[in-house]
Design a protein around this nucleic acid. Sequence first.
DNA 1: CACCAGGCAAGTA
DNA 2: TACTTGCATGGT
Length: 209
Amino acid sequence: MEYYRSMLAALGHRHWWPAKTPFEVCVGAILTQNTAWTGVEKALANLENAGALDPRVLSALPVPALEELIRPAGYFRLKATRLRGLLYYLEQSCDFDLGVLARRGMGEVREELLAVRGVGPETADSILCYALGMPSFVVDAYTRRILSRHGLVPEDAPYHELRDYFMDVLEPDPALYNDFHAQLVRVGNRFCKTRKPLCEECPLGSYLS
DNA sequence: CACCAGGCAAGTA
DNA sequence: TACTTGCATGGT
């Protein structure tokens, strides 16, 4: 919590995820897997220009066409199938009305998302938090890097351990989880860019006080 | 040129 | 169960 207060003071509220609609969040969550956001932006722009940032239009799109549109996000064949899988789930579970999912129990929806091929814990939590407005803490590479380098968790700590680390302490407040993860990404992006063990300039230490 | 980016699943022993 | 590998483009 001290980290959060410090980052909040330094950076201000971020209220995050660059997307216009909850559905766009779902698409972005798949596209950004192990990929720089710049490529994802291009892919999303392509989809937008094609009028395909709509669940029904996107579902009707032939796979090769979809692959071409998302090519700049990398792993395009893989992600095309993953998107189809997620679309199928969204249609079956709520007929593309994400508000319906948002009113159900978080644990239940999380399990269902994890059962979709190509949806792992981070993607599921991103959708829960940023598309459905639920208090599911998102752990990503930056989160792990920042916490482990500050000796708060082992470097190879499993996903759920990091998630619990936050959720055991924080109130289940969607806006808080949203902003907190955004802060971590911002700090990681600016100061812990590399995978290599040291990030000398990382000023998180100075955020603690 | 080498390395990295907001993961995940499948294959191997 | 615990490693390893494939997936692909674009930027530094």
